[in-house]
C-alpha cells in the first residue's frame, strides 16, 4: 500500500477512529535524518500487509505533533485501535520497526 498523508484535519478519522495498527512517521522537509527514514517507511508500507502507514508533516500540522509530545524528529508512533502503543525517536532501522509490527 502507498503511504498516506495525515494532517490536522483527517487525523481523527483516519488514525484515531480506525481499527488495527497504523504507523505514523512525523517528519519535516528540513530534517536530514527524516529524509533517510523516508525510504524505510516506504518499504514498510509496501512490504507489510494489514497495516496502514502514513506521514505527518510537523511543520504544517503542529497540533498533532504537540498532542503526541513530538520534540525530536523523525519520530514514529504505532497506533493500535486509535491508541499510541509504541514510539521510536530518531532514525530507526527497518528491522527494529518490523519487529514491533509482527
Amino acid at each position: 500500500m502507498s503511504v498516506k498523508i495525515f494532517n490536522d484535519n483527517n487525523f481523527n478519522n483516519e488514525v484515531l477512529n480506525e481499527k488495527g495498527k497504523i504507523l505514523v512517521d512525523f517528519y519535516a522537509d528540513w530534517c536530514g535524518p527524516c529524509k533517510m527514514m523516508s525510504p524505510i517507511i516506504d518499504e514498510i508500507a509496501e512490504e507489510i500487509e494489514n497495516i496502514t502507514v502514513g506521514k505527518v508533516n510537523v511543520d504544517e500540522n503542529p497540533e498533532i505533533a504537540s498532542k503526541y509530545g513530538i520534540m525530536s524528529i523523525p519520530t514514529i508512533i504505532i497506533f493500535e485501535n486509535g491508541m499510541p502503543q509504541k514510539k521510536f525517536i530518531g532514525l530507526t532501522s527497518k528491522s527494529e520497526i518490523e519487529s514491533e509490527l509482527k
Binding site: 519535516a28 528540513w30 530534517c31 536530514g32 535524518p33 527524516c34 510537523v58 511543520d59 505533533a65 509530545g69 513530538i70 520534540m71 525530536s72 524528529i73 519520530t75 525517536i89 530518531g90
Partner: peptide, 17 residues
C-alpha cells in the same frame, strides 16, 4: 529524556522550542 526535550541536533529539533 532523549527525544523528550533533550536533543543532539539543533538543526533538526530547534523548531520544537
Amino acid at each position: 529524556f532523549e527525544g523528550k526535550g533533550i536533543s543532539y541536533c539543533a538543526i533538526c529539533d530547534g523548531f520544537f522550542f
